[in-house]
């Protein structure tokens, strides 16, 4: 899931300066699950911005709305009118939704309400952790199902660096050493011997290095 974190009210407030009608626009999928940008968070954000406006004595109309996903054309139909009404939109979606909305409404100024942080999972209620960097060329089969690219601070592919101490990464005691986890899991799987297989030089062309990526599936095209 895409994990995001709300921007501070002050930051959002600064971005909407000068507009008279602002729509805070929620996205009810990934960023709703991480309690950052769902329709409910949009409602809360709008309310807080309205209070900020009151405090600052600024005349501005702030409303909220939201759709299921800001990355699909069809969902926008129900809100076109609300979007047309606004001078500016604060999108509470991840970077994808913000851009998608911007593309669809080319004359509407669009502000991000959240920071898109990573692709991750709910570790426990209230804690989300990064698990994947969408490199486009998965090696999890060789690393006991734990990704060293996303979870090792140096994305080392052939083992821990010399800084791995007591299972923790050299850059922080709060961070698990991904390679420790890999070794532990390989041990549990009784496959520690596989560690010595050299993981070859990675093809990064499927990552950011290859430019904006695209998946085309003719069989699902309509």
């Amino acid at each position: 899931m895409i994990v995001g974190k709300q921007k501070s009210i002050d930051e959002v407030w600064a971005m909407i300066q000068g507009y008279k009608k602002v729509l805070v626009f929620g996205c009810n999928t990934c960023v709703a699950v991480c309690h950052a940008g769902g329709n409910k968070e949009a409602e809360v954000m709008a309310s807080m911005l309205r209070m900020k406006a009151k405090q600052e004595n600024v005349d501005i109309d702030i409303q909220d709305s939201g759709i299921e996903r800001q990355c699909e054309h069809e969902f926008f139909e129900s809100v076109t009118e609300r979007i047309e009404w606004a001078d500016a939109i604060v999108s509470m979606a991840c970077g994808i939704g913000v851009q998608f909305t911007a593309e669809k409404f080319s004359t509407k100024p669009l502000m991000p309400g959240i920071n898109t942080t990573f692709l991750g999972a709910t570790e426990k209620p209230g804690v989300w952790t990064e698990k994947c960097q969408a490199c486009g060329n998965c090696i999890l089969g060789m690393t006991a199902g734990i990704c060293p690219i996303a979870r090792c601070a140096k994305r080392l592919m052939n083992g821990p660096c010399g800084g791995s101490t007591k299972g923790k990464c050299e850059i922080s005691k709060d961070l698990d050493c991904a390679w420790q986890l890999i070794i532990d899991r390989l041990t549990a799987l009784n496959r520690l011997n596989e560690y010595e297989t050299l993981i070859p030089i990675k093809d990064w062309s499927t990552d950011r290095a290859g430019g904006p990526r695209k998946v085309v599936r003719e069989d699902v095209m309509v």
Binding site: G159, P160, C161, G162, G163, S164, T165, K166, G167, C177, W179, Q180, I183, D184, T187, L192, Y195
Partner: peptide
């Protein structure tokens, strides 16, 4: 020789 995990 001193980093963890020692077994690897």
């Amino acid at each position: 020789p001193f980093a963890d995990p020692f077994e690897i």
